[in-house]
Structure formats: C-alpha cells, structure tokens
Design a protein around this nucleic acid. Sequence first.
DNA 1: CTATCGTATCGAACGTCGTTCGGTAGTCGA
DNA 2: TCGACTACCGAACGACGTTCGATACGATAG
Lengths: 224, 224
Amino acid sequence: MPRRRASHSMESVITEAVAILDEAGSAALTFRALAGRLGGGVASIYWYVDNKEELLDRATDHVIGDVLGDIARREATEDPIEDLRTSAVMLFDAVTARPWLASYLLRNTDLQPNALRLYEHLGQQVMRLDLPPRETFHALSAVIGYVIGTAADLGQQPPAEVLEGQTTREEYLGRYAERWRESDPQDYPFLHYVVEEFDGHQDADQFSAGLDLVLAGLRLQADR
Amino acid sequence: MPRRRASHSMESVITEAVAILDEAGSAALTFRALAGRLGGGVASIYWYVDNKEELLDRATDHVIGDVLGDIARREATEDPIEDLRTSAVMLFDAVTARPWLASYLLRNTDLQPNALRLYEHLGQQVMRLDLPPRETFHALSAVIGYVIGTAADLGQQPPAEVLEGQTTREEYLGRYAERWRESDPQDYPFLHYVVEEFDGHQDADQFSAGLDLVLAGLRLQADR
DNA sequence: CTATCGTATCGAACGTCGTTCGGTAGTCGA
DNA sequence: TCGACTACCGAACGACGTTCGATACGATAG
C-alpha cells in the first residue's frame, strides 16, 4: 500500500516556518527544512508562497498579529504617553524574544497588513496628544525607530557559545567589559566611565531608560 | 607568453568589496564578483579573510573609519548636545548613503575597532553633560539605537523599480499614500490624519525631528 | 646563477541553497 | 466513467560560500 501524499495548508506552512525560526534562528529556515517538517516535498511550498521573501513576510506578519492582539487587548489609561510606553515595551519584548523579527519588520510591505494595523494602533495613541499632523507623524516615527532599532541591536544572536549553553550571557558580557577595562583610559575615558554599568546590565533596563528619554521629549512637546 | 598572476592586498580587497556594495547593494557582493573585479581567482580572497562575515566586518569598519574621521574633524562647540546632534546627523547621512551599512554595524564585534572608537567619541560628548555613569550609558545607548534603527528603517532599498530609475521616489511614496487614503477612515483614523505629511516627506526631516525629541529628553535630564 | 623556501595565487570540486519544470495523485461535478 | 482542476512532488539547474591541493612567484642563501 503506497504512502498517501502529504496535505498542507497556508496555516500549517506559516506556523511551521515560525517554529523553525523560533527554535533555530533565521539561518535554519530553508525550504528543505520546512518541507521535511511538513512531511512533504520542497516544491509544494511554492504553491503557497512565491518565494522566500514572501514566506518571511507572512511569517513575520503572523506573529505581529499576535503581538498586536496582546497590545490591543490592554485597556487604555487616561495618559496617552503611558499607553504608548506600555505598547512600546510589549513590542520590544516580542522582538527580543524573536531576534529574527526585527530585520523583517523593517521591511514595510503590502504583505504585512498586521504591521500596518500595529502602526495605526500606536499612531492613535500619539494622536491623543493633539499635536498637528506633522508633529504626530514625526513622533510616531521616532518611537518606532527607537523601539525597532534598539531591539534589532540588543536582540542580536550572541555568539554560538552562548546559544549552546557553554557560556552564560554574564560571562560573555564580562569578557567584553574586561577588554574595555584593558583599554587605555587616556584614549577611552568614556568606556572606563561606564564599564561598570555595561558589565552585567540588563537589556530591558537599557531599553526602558532610553524609551523614557524619547517619551520625555515627546511629553515636553505635547505640553507646549 | 603566459599571463601573469594577479597580485592583491588587504587594502584592495576591502576597497573593491566596498565599491561593489556601494554600486549594487549587499546581494551583489559575492566572492566570485569580488574576484572578478580584482582580476584573480575566488580562492585568493580567502588568504585575506577567513569567511564572508569577516569580509563584511572589515568592509563596514573601513567606511566607519572614514565617517569617524569626518565626525572627529569637526570642532566642538560649547553645547555638548549640539555636538552630539551634529555627530548623529553625520552618522545618519553616512548610513542612508550606504544602506548596507546599517545591518552590519549592529553587529558589535572585535573586528570593528573603528566602530568602537566612534562609540567612544559619541560617549565623550555625552559625558560632558555630567550625568552619573548609569544615565550616561543609557543616554548614549538611546541615541545610537535611534540613529542606527531609524537609518536601517529609512535606508532600506526601495523596490527594484526605483533603483532602475523607472519610478521616482515621489511616485513610489505617492502610491503608498494613495493606499492609505483608500483605507477606511473609521478603522484607520491615524493614517488619514498624517497621510499628507507622509506623502512627499523627506527622510532626513523625519529623522531630524525624531532626533530632536530624543535630545530634548536628554537635555531635560541633564538640566535636572 | 641556481637551489630553496615561505608567501600568495588559483582551478576545480563539494555541498547547500532558492527556484523551476514537467508530471502525477487526489478530488469532484457532470 | 470521465475529464478538469487542484494540490503535490522528484529531479534538475545555476549560484553561492567554502575547501583542497597544486603551483607560480619573490626573496634569500649557497
């Protein structure tokens, strides 16, 4: 009795693609790996997606849909900036949990409707500040630029050793800090001034402090 | 008479790699293309770099060296934040002029000493605000996160049509704006509120306005 | 001038990737 | 029972990063 042909669906294709990205990072997502996971042939995937770019766009938008759901579910407070802050932190957390997200999220394409909805949602919170269109547009651009940019930066994959559990993040950071300490204090006064902060810092704290800076600037503008 | 063997150097390898990246984008930088340009064989390049990652790191650091030179050459004013602003704008301009820079700059590695020097240079300007180490560290992280993140976002390669000169950036932006206008104003009030600002906007203005927000927040903190 | 040796170069091959093509199994209405 | 349409897939293609062993070159020593 011959083996039955496999049967896929857009849903399963995207779900499994996301699973691979989450488990093994963006380099591991190949059509062959995905086909293997789906128990089918490589070419079958091309019935659902035109190319890898579209696969990544759909995978990205799929998880952004979830993030948007979480964000939108939260009730609004009376302070728009506080709401914006909450949303920004949630977005940041989602991106650092999935380092592969950042790079593809930067590509605003037609194939990412949920990204557009998220943009709209954040924009509505900025609108409540009653700034003119120009300032409103710029304010949201600044916040999103900061969030995505910082997440992309901080969310980079640490070297393989950390991933494989041979080294902790703290040791990795500590070795970097050590190199800072060994540099010439004459040439690198700043590195020495902040090295103790750098060593053992938490990415989330760093992000949060910077976000406060952006939002403080925004509040200043809104109150003017 | 047999053709002579080609003769390379680290300098020429990196210079030509940067030339390819500038002329045709990061997808065009292959070992074969680079070898062809150098008039030699593919394997020769491996005598200078261990792998493609190192090639990209060296290329990135090479141009960051130039950027750092330009930035450091400017004289300091009496206002640290104004100096920081000037440096940030110069860095932003450099990255948007070379969209491929952003992605590789995010990867803080040992092989990018100039990136570390740039970090130090910007840090020294923040130090002049006399904030404690923790706040100083966070402030620089925020500024850099914003600059690189926004540059990476805005500096994305537009679709092929624009690159090939078949469409102008304005038309491309306009078509996007058109889609915003066609969306339901009930569901997308924000898009409609800012669409006129979006249509025909200049990336540099958008960046500059957002940077002002961040720096206003920083100034607020410094004056406290 | 010749022999030697480390340096630098290169042709050819390997395995993997995204993508394409032609064909075929499965399903369903007529 | 029969086509026709949908969904699937094996096999191949060209391009990529990378490796290996061979070899040309330039400097040095005899």
